[in-house]
Amino acid sequence: MSEWVSDKPAPAPVARLGRAHLLGLGLGSLVGFITMLAFSALLSLGPAPPPLHPHPTARLARDVPDVIFKAPSYTGFVNQNGDKISSSAFDGKVRVVSFLFPLCSSMCPVIASHIVDLEQQVKQAGLADRVRMVSFNVAAGKTSPAEMAAFMREYGGDPKSPTWQFLTASPAAMSRVVRDGYHEYFQMISLEAENKIFAEQQKAGTYNYMPNMQNKLANKVNPDFDVTHSSSLILVGPHGNVRYVMNDADTVPVPVILKKIEGLLKANGA
């Protein structure tokens, strides 16, 4: 498979093509398939449809354009330790971007476990100072840095490690970065509204059971809301250009991601 060859400035905007992002849209696994069915119906009755990507999603088995789009800039975000973080902190590094929230009991635990695995492999490859895992908290304003740190620990992460940065901000700032900047979907919904939708599905005979993943923190907090959100994994090159958008972060093998990270660093001479 051919790889991209440079990290040039982003080109002029291209035609926008739609792509649906639903929580747990894992077509490569039974869990993802069941989740997709449930939330497809939920979104048709509940939250608005997802935003549009400015470029077709790059599939792993196809050639990837030089630049898909420019990653958004931001200031004043806060990580899991309460430290202020701006996008400039990642200049010159490859960013592995994901979208999670600490009270999630669907795909987030799976993705978090994959991030921890990838983080260890990055360290073993001697790339820890050149790569950052950057997760955005899609339950901003409803969950705290302390809960983000607890979530990381629950799945084997070390909140004190600089390699994985779990970021939060005001809901408006998070929407600007995730929706407008990365063109990824998230929507908060109350459990009351969600349960009403599920009840209507059961009555109509269209309900599909959606299994939960273990999340001790969520069990302890017992939140009154859920968040439907993208399960994408995005790779950003050292110069801030998005190179890969992988639809289902829970199904992409970690060695594949590591190989692409190494390719990004080698091609850029970073």
Rank of each mutant, 00 (worst) to 15 (best):
residue 70 K to N: 09
residue 122 V to D: 02
residue 87 S to A: 13
residue 49 P to H: 10
residue 118 L to F: 08
residue 118 L to E: 11
residue 104 C to S: 02
residue 114 H to T: 12
residue 71 A to T: 14
residue 87 S to M: 00
residue 66 D to F: 04
residue 54 P to F: 04
residue 90 F to N: 08
residue 48 A to V: 09
residue 72 P to A: 13
residue 63 D to W: 09
residue 53 H to L: 13
residue 95 R to H: 08
residue 111 I to M: 07
residue 112 A to N: 08
residue 134 V to E: 10
residue 116 V to A: 02
residue 71 A to D: 10
residue 117 D to T: 15
residue 50 P to R: 00
residue 131 V to L: 04
residue 121 Q to N: 13
residue 64 V to H: 07
residue 95 R to F: 05
residue 122 V to A: 05
residue 62 R to S: 13
residue 104 C to D: 02
residue 80 Q to W: 01
residue 68 I to P: 07
residue 95 R to I: 12
residue 64 V to W: 03
residue 103 L to C: 02
residue 121 Q to H: 13
residue 129 D to C: 04
residue 134 V to I: 15
residue 51 P to V: 05
residue 74 Y to A: 13
residue 51 P to W: 01
residue 109 P to Q: 08
residue 54 P to I: 05
residue 128 A to G: 10
residue 122 V to L: 03
residue 78 V to K: 00
residue 63 D to N: 12
residue 53 H to G: 12
residue 108 C to D: 00
residue 119 E to C: 09
residue 117 D to M: 06
residue 55 H to R: 09
residue 59 R to P: 06
residue 80 Q to D: 01
residue 53 H to T: 13
residue 132 R to S: 12
residue 134 V to W: 00
residue 114 H to Q: 11
residue 50 P to E: 08
residue 135 S to K: 01
residue 81 N to V: 03
residue 62 R to E: 15
residue 132 R to H: 12
residue 120 Q to W: 04
residue 49 P to G: 10
residue 112 A to M: 13
residue 116 V to C: 08
residue 128 A to W: 03
residue 76 G to V: 06
residue 114 H to F: 10
residue 87 S to Y: 06
residue 99 F to G: 05
residue 136 F to T: 12
residue 65 P to Y: 02
residue 84 K to S: 11
residue 54 P to R: 01
residue 59 R to F: 11
residue 136 F to L: 14
residue 128 A to H: 06
residue 78 V to L: 00
residue 124 Q to G: 07
residue 107 M to I: 14
residue 54 P to D: 04
residue 63 D to Y: 04
residue 72 P to V: 11
residue 82 G to N: 03
residue 127 L to A: 07
residue 89 A to G: 12
residue 71 A to H: 09
residue 84 K to M: 09
residue 138 V to F: 08
residue 56 P to F: 02
residue 115 I to W: 07
residue 139 A to P: 03
residue 96 V to D: 06
residue 136 F to V: 12
residue 112 A to V: 09
residue 58 A to Y: 04
residue 107 M to P: 11
residue 103 L to N: 08
residue 63 D to C: 06
residue 125 A to W: 02
